[in-house]
Design a binder for these strands. Structure first.
Lengths: 337, 337
DNA sequence: TTAAATAATGTTACCGATAACCTTAAATTA
DNA sequence: TAATTTAAGGTTATCGGTAACATTATTTAA
């Protein structure tokens, strides 16, 4: 590896002079600067960020931790975070926790150990609390995305989960549906809890009874085994006429399960869900959804993170909370009764 | 920040002893080990990877550089790479070049400067050559994914682009199509070139003429402006009865454009493409595709990368090339003439 | 009983950069 | 012309670890 000492020797200056040329600090004559630059090019010099971070006590690296890299909601969010990070001159790295608290812990370790300057986290759920506490203890600024974690105050960008759920249920009732089921993420995930609340509120407002067996609390991430969904369908008697899915992944799995038993959507079962499917929904606009502004989650979250980093140590600015709306997109997956 | 010196002082030992406890090297009495461990916990010690990498000359970090984080092909690939990296005890970070050579350069800089131990690269295209040369010059092991770059030998995992294109065209001709158009990625991308070749070969084998105006060479990534596709549709006279899209993104954009002018798929225009849409194809199985084994691209690529890293400096093992098959999945986007 | 081996720990130098301070010569200013 | 500034650069210490070698008891073998 070529170091500033190699450059210095070949250019006949001290290492400090090379450092000054690299960082455009101090006073350097044009002649010296040019000579150093030329030697740097000749030797293909690349600064060693580790050495630099060690002394500067900052890495210029930011992390984005998402829970499902195959979910278009999160990848679109990632694009937003990326654009905002770039705008502020930060490098952004991604990590994928797969909705798995253990993996999340590994990434938090990586983040601490690489001394990242800040993190954007979509936490796996309430059990992520210790990880966030670790970040806080080590004074790593972070902004939560999409999910809150009870017991941890911080900046956060959320979607209007409760309102979105109500919109979905209202849409179904407006089409004449009265038996409406909900398949949801884990109750240990704040957004799932709010979606359940919204669902219950909407039922009440529409004078519909709440029925326990019509609600399945499972997990937001993709699974290979559909048996819990199958068992749930078996349990419901009579079957609902419509299902609300807590996110796009669950919607897909419900469809797979229904197709497996020859139940057609929307003819025999209506289906709506949270989150659009990215560009792919355009192929054959089918699923009626409440779309969240995924890109904005990432963009605004990153903006808040950078603000936090840049005013570090200043008078404690209060935590900010941004709630983004969820908008109905009516397509073809709901039939009128 | 807590350092080994803080631990050492509080535990009444030297820093070296702490280092030995952390790394399980050398001989340490059980009593000392226990004491050091306890102090480490008390102080919430986290090793500084930058300091460690600086002296060890390796970071234990691997990178995966993809060109479109919103494309399910690449996100599925990423999951494969992640699993394989984890199996070998490496940390994996992602970067998204957005099919943009400039962004790719930024990531290569980040990779060099953070002294990553190796990289998995889906190159933006032939103009990526200088970046790969930079990596090679700095002796960073890398494996190419999905695309080759002329002028750069290396390990690589490819899909059978030519064969896949032939399968798509053959399927269309078997359904009676004779006017078959191709919308493809940039000719500076190796997979796009091979797909064009496969298309031409298949036309010839089916005794169909090759018509220049039936081929549009554009870009694989998502765009906001559809005017080039519109102009292409205008140019073709008579219109083809079927279109082959060089990847899933292009297929989506063709559909958007067709819908805009009220042309229905498959009734008025048949459409097939490379790469499946991930789980979302299940929602409403519509697009007929040749599916590549995205997960395997990542998994096998990572495996090759780790091998390269671990035998670094040994007698130059010849470059390996893996070609993964592309398999037809027939759905509903092709009509029979 | 004494030399050699081993266990357990400490010391020093170094990885590659930068901050803080120091030096020297040239340019200004009084 | 002497006293100050300023420009251009150098020296040294340090960031947080680890390798290599050194030291000191304590065993073990001869």
């Amino acid at each position: 590896m070529v170091t500033i000492y190699d450059i210095a020797a070949k250019a006949g200056v001290s290492a400090m002079t090379v450092s000054r040329v690299i960082n455009n600090t101090g006073k350097i004559s044009d002649k010296t600067r040019a000579r150093v630059r030329r030697v740097m090019e000749e030797l293909n010099y690349v600064p060693n960020q580790m050495a630099r971070s060690l002394v500067l006590q900052q890495s210029n690296l930011l992390f984005l931790l998402i829970t499902d890299i195959t979910n278009p909601f999160y990848t679109t969010l990632a694009r937003g975070a990326e654009d905002a990070a770039k705008k502020h001159g930060y490098r952004l790295l991604f990590g994928n926790s797969d909705e798995n608290v253990e993996k999340e812990k590994d990434y938090v370790d990586t983040i601490l150990t690489t001394r990242a300057d800040g993190v954007l986290v979509a936490p796996a759920g309430d059990p992520s609390l210790p990880h966030l506490e670790t970040l806080r203890r080590h004074q790593v600024p972070f902004v939560l995305l999409d999910r809150e974690v009870p017991g941890m105050d911080s900046d956060v960008v959320l979607g209007d989960s409760k309102g979105g759920a109500r919109k979905l249920v209202d849409h179904l009732t407006s089409q004449g549906h009265r038996r409406i089921a909900l398949i949801n993420g884990s109750p240990y995930v704040s957004s799932a809890r709010l979606r359940l609340e919204g669902y219950r509120e909407a039922l009440k407002l529409n004078d519909l009874p709440y029925n326990d067996t019509y609600v399945l609390e499972t997990a937001f991430e993709p699974r290979s085994d559909l048996s819990d969904i199958e068992a749930w369908l078996d349990r419901m008697n009579p079957l609902p006429t419509a299902i609300v899915a807590g996110n796009n992944v669950l919607a897909v799995e419900v469809i797979r399960t229904l197709h497996k038993r020859g139940i057609r959507v929307p003819e025999q079962m209506s289906l709506v869900c949270f989150d659009d499917l990215g560009p792919y929904s355009e192929i054959d606009p089918f699923l009626t959804v409440v779309a969240q502004q995924a890109y904005q989650f990432g963009y605004l979250g990153m903006q808040m993170l950078v603000e936090r980093i840049q005013e570090r140590g200043e008078t404690g600015m209060p935590w900010k909370k941004i709630v983004l709306p969820a908008d109905m997109i009516v397509r073809r997956s709901v039939s009128t009764l």
